[in-house]
Design a protein around this nucleic acid. Sequence first.
DNA 1: TATGAATGAGAGTTCATTCAT
DNA 2: AATGAATGAACTCTCATTCAT
Lengths: 224, 224, 224, 224
Amino acid sequence: MSRHKKDSNREITAAEQASEAVGSRQALKSERTRTDLLRAAEIIFARDGFEASRIEDIAAEAGRSRGAFYANFDSKTEVFLALRSRATLRHAREVRERVASLRDDAARYAAITRYIVEQICDTQTQLLQIEFKLFALRHPKMLAELAEKHLEASTSINRQELSDLFPEKNESLAQTRSTTLAIEAVLEGFALNARFSPQVLDESRLQEIVPKLLAQIFHYGEEN
Amino acid sequence: MSRHKKDSNREITAAEQASEAVGSRQALKSERTRTDLLRAAEIIFARDGFEASRIEDIAAEAGRSRGAFYANFDSKTEVFLALRSRATLRHAREVRERVASLRDDAARYAAITRYIVEQICDTQTQLLQIEFKLFALRHPKMLAELAEKHLEASTSINRQELSDLFPEKNESLAQTRSTTLAIEAVLEGFALNARFSPQVLDESRLQEIVPKLLAQIFHYGEEN
Amino acid sequence: MSRHKKDSNREITAAEQASEAVGSRQALKSERTRTDLLRAAEIIFARDGFEASRIEDIAAEAGRSRGAFYANFDSKTEVFLALRSRATLRHAREVRERVASLRDDAARYAAITRYIVEQICDTQTQLLQIEFKLFALRHPKMLAELAEKHLEASTSINRQELSDLFPEKNESLAQTRSTTLAIEAVLEGFALNARFSPQVLDESRLQEIVPKLLAQIFHYGEEN
Amino acid sequence: MSRHKKDSNREITAAEQASEAVGSRQALKSERTRTDLLRAAEIIFARDGFEASRIEDIAAEAGRSRGAFYANFDSKTEVFLALRSRATLRHAREVRERVASLRDDAARYAAITRYIVEQICDTQTQLLQIEFKLFALRHPKMLAELAEKHLEASTSINRQELSDLFPEKNESLAQTRSTTLAIEAVLEGFALNARFSPQVLDESRLQEIVPKLLAQIFHYGEEN
DNA sequence: TATGAATGAGAGTTCATTCAT
DNA sequence: AATGAATGAACTCTCATTCAT
């Protein structure tokens, strides 16, 4: 496994005590390396796809060597999955932040919808997400675990918001989950096709269609 | 397709004409090989994905050798694209056939919707379609041509049906195309996620959500 | 082995007797095939070199199939060697014919020299000869036999001419052979380099240098 | 030469500068690998010929892996050409050194002649040179450039010596070049045939013939 | 921790040769 | 005798990963 996780609670050696200042600077530099590599990996994975991405290109993009990559991560797969996991959490957090300050249901709904349409336009991210799911499908042994983790991350933060948003529906976990996946399906499907044929599925067309689909998924406006 | 790569445009010799009768039986066997290989490729591509599929596996699945593969096709890419192209035409034809005998608008709409939901459940095909589009995206030089061909095939047969279905809307080519891609977006997005997490997005859930989304895309029922 | 050698003295079957006219026409056609293939092989070998030449290209050049090639010859190597052997005999015969009618020593010498310079300009042939000798060197087991056969063919016809030409020297077989190889060395060396850099070693330069070298090899003009 | 094919022109990082001391020992080892591979390639090319040489055999001869070969060179072709280029320069240098200390024209001429006869006996080298020229001929796009480079290297060092040797002739560049190629023609032609039939064209025979040919090429002794 | 040379399995592809017709 | 589809060994080259430093 990646050694970074152990860094915080491992015993301090004599050498380290002898040069605490130097050590902290190294730790900083090392953390920087890791971050640089992750950032670089995101770029290369998005550009070339998971399979076609080369460790060498990721390292070069980060201004490091292949060795630095393997000092920080176990494999290409690990980084890819770590990256996707981070991105999912980031997006969940983003939704929370956007919704947090809003009191009004309609405002909240509008904010969420706006965020989702924005997301479709961030095709890089959606393509990576598609690749992540394809990867999971191609590795049946990991599929169940990956799907569970993904849904947990994807809904854990949303859940509260969603039930706040639609308290009368008092959604079950299963409902939240299927709503989440349905939204992701729309996100991914439209991002892929918008990128495949930008002239046909341009931004204005997405602005027009997608909100209507989301309304159906959220059952919004039905009661009236 | 790709036989006789080096001498494909040389004149036909007397010897070749003389052996036409013999050829017909050979041609039959040869056609069988080609078909077997295509069938096998479809299976392997669906199982392993385009990138991870090995010619050797395709050949083995067809009960042939790698050489037979290269005697019939130029490359893995060619087969993949040929396969997708065929599938797109096949589905367009399928839609036509299902709709052809129906006189009633509502019946037609229902038939199309039913077909689309069925299609989502044929996840193999949709996954391949996703890979096809990802492939196109990763090969910018081919993208425009691939997208154009795909849309042409995808809409050529549908166009008539769709305009028959909604004559009052008198859709433009551009509208037909964006409608088609929107449907494909839903198809692909839901197939991917249904496969990713079958418990969450099970068939009944798809039956419930997808038709509502299609109604939005088709603007169906709006006038009332 | 190639089946042609057996053709002349094999027993006549009933079928053949029943259609003698047809048979002779077939035999003719078959001989034609063989000739076409040899001619094609010469062209392709000269163009691409022995190693890089493909049976498919030879067959195509002859307007036949790969199968026809293997029906007439055992292997690429066999054809190559047969071709070289034929060429060597042809050249020896050519020398004889050119010299035969000449009575005068000086005229004969001039004729031979002229022929050799001509030969250098036929670079295709010389390149093939170089390849033949390289081939022999790379196959130590065949080397002795190939060299012996080559020298036998190369000198058998020349020998008489040469000893006619310089009777006073009464050359031994060994002397004839080394003279022959020396001439071939000049032929091949200059052909190769003239082809490598035609501007530097152009025809006029060859006309100037080569005869002087041949004079040395033939010891011609020394006695005066 | 060819390392860092993809990122060869990226800026040098701090990390790289920091490990310069460590690098020097690695660089040494790496240089050793490169040298080993070149030496091995020379052996294998000479033994099997360029076309028939396998990277695997070269790597094995050097005690390395195929990967090591490709870490150091781009292709078989690159190594072959690099090797030939080096050899040409080495021989030019060798001539210079042998002639440098000699004051006397006759002595210089004798030294050069002796060197050339020696070279013919180094058949490995001459065979490689023949293969190099055949390679160039088979690759018309590279021919002009390869020929120019070769002549430049071959004559650059010789030129001075040759004009020192025969100042009264005040040879032009064109003359030097054609003289050089003529010598190479003799070298290569006799090396090939001496190797093809060592009994016929043995060393004593070469010692006898070749100097006479060189005298003609150098016009030496004509003035008397 | 970071380097990058080295490994070596494995990919796509080519082609001399075989063989059913 | 001739066809040409099929075979399969062998090729060059790639790249995730290891390891000595």
